[in-house]
Design a binder for these strands. Structure first.
Lengths: 246, 246
DNA sequence: CAATTGTGTAATCGGTGATTACATTCACGA
DNA sequence: TCGTGAATGTAATCACCGATTACACAATTG
């Protein structure tokens, strides 16, 4: 018998169309009352889950955290939500659709983290703010490698599938352009080619974050402080490199 | 019936232990006489393939080229080699082992490309050679994105599984350290911290290559020239950034 | 020529994404 | 209040994949 629950014991085959026993096992249910967007009260043992979409996304984010982006499987997410393997299909026609939703949530968090870091920067100096941007970027990426991977790798969801991720990301890129433009207006930069600086800056932080994800820094994972110092040093090097020498 | 060949037609079940018809279909066989390491002459229709290991690696490299590193499957490689799905097991106990072999071959090519580019540089100026290194790196990575991905992402083979890849890569990194050290000895650099420059340089090119792989440059893929110019500009920016201003 | 070793085949297992028919429930309107 | 249809979850199934085993066949070697 095909049983998606955790009981693997062989059961006597239920005659094909016999009415099922009304007793249902139900798992997790995220017992801290998941308030849906509509503030519905979820009775604990209903046939309908009530908030499956959200729970699936949460489970997928969790799976990614635990075992990397590749470890996310629709079936396992369903298992953790306590529903059958086919249930997610109603909400996400394909695994990619689930991953898109995951990416949107992750991107939202990423953006918030950076926005918060910049908001905390009291200075008006665009290069100082640029530094803060880069540092927040790297810190978030190193703290949430799997989520960063989902967002960035363009392998888990089609980039043109989620307008949210696309626009949100474009906004971040624009922000760096803005900051560099301001710095240029103040005569703080050596080179005139903003475009190259922008893309080089992106490549630098992206590469550092990805190297971390891809296991190029085997020493870390524990030495959190060293990683942070390294991140800071790299950004300093970049900013010093493009800034006009005093 | 389970048939690994291309014929999907239902056949009458062959009685379990009946002697098989001696007629065998045999695919590809890489008909340009694959000379094994031992220079064996491969007769075209033997039961034994004769050079399966090599052919499997070649097929895997091809699959990666065609559909990205994730598109490599042991079964498909076996299919292209014209053998059963279980055959590769003799040579590669797991998919990762196959990918390790693929990575070794790719790394070998990568290293050659860079070595050749540096050898062509007549100049003795370490920064000029450093530039050549970076450019060769980016050019190869952009020309062989899937192969670069297999080498670098540490997801397709355990980094400690292949001494070849590890050492080969360490040698490349050493090379950059050497070049930067030479530049420092000649007083060409602004900063004293070689370690940071080394890692920032790595992150920069790695990030650029990875952004290309991950689809962050949607415009390209056709505009090859633009990508090349961009690569050059980025490396120039970096070298100018770390070099002492004239 | 015979035995041993290497190599490919056949068959099977468990896991996964995808898809369909069906069961149950909920929400809305008569 | 009650029925009906739309939502939503279940059951069952398919194809594909990686892994593994027992077995068949070939190549080599003595």
């Amino acid at each position: 018998m095909l049983c998606w629950g955790m009981s693997r014991s062989a059961k006597p085959p239920p005659s094909r169309s016999a009415p099922k026993s009304p007793v249902r096992k139900r798992a997790l249910q995220s017992s801290a009352a998941p308030r849906g967007a509509k503030g519905r009260t979820p009775s604990p043992k209903t046939y309908h889950h009530g908030d499956l979409r959200r729970v699936l996304i949460a489970a997928a984010l969790e799976l990614a955290e635990e075992g990397g982006a590749d470890a996310v499987s629709v079936r396992e997410a369903a298992r953790r939500a306590g529903v059958s393997p086919g249930a997610p299909f109603r909400h996400f026609p394909s695994r990619n659709d689930l991953m898109s939703a995951v990416a949107e949530e992750a991107q939202r968090r990423f953006r918030s983290a950076i926005a918060a870091a910049i908001a905390e920067t009291s200075s008006e100096d665009p290069l100082v703010r640029f530094r803060a941007f880069g540092l927040a970027y790297l810190r978030w990426a190193m703290k949430n490698p799997a989520h960063f991977e989902v967002i960035s790798s363009g392998k888990y969801f089609a980039h043109d599938q989620s307008a949210v991720v696309r626009e949100d990301n474009a906004e971040l890129i624009d922000m760096t352009g803005q900051l560099l433009g301001d710095a240029q207006d103040r005569g703080q930069l050596r080179s005139a080619d903003l475009r190259i600086m922008k893309i080089a800056g992106r490549a630098l932080v992206y590469g550092f974050a990805r190297m971390n994800i891809d296991g190029h820094f085997p020493r870390w994972g524990v030495a959190d402080a060293e990683a942070d110092q390294m991140a800071e040093a790299i950004i300093t090097l970049f900013v010093d490199g493009i800034a006009k020498p005093v």
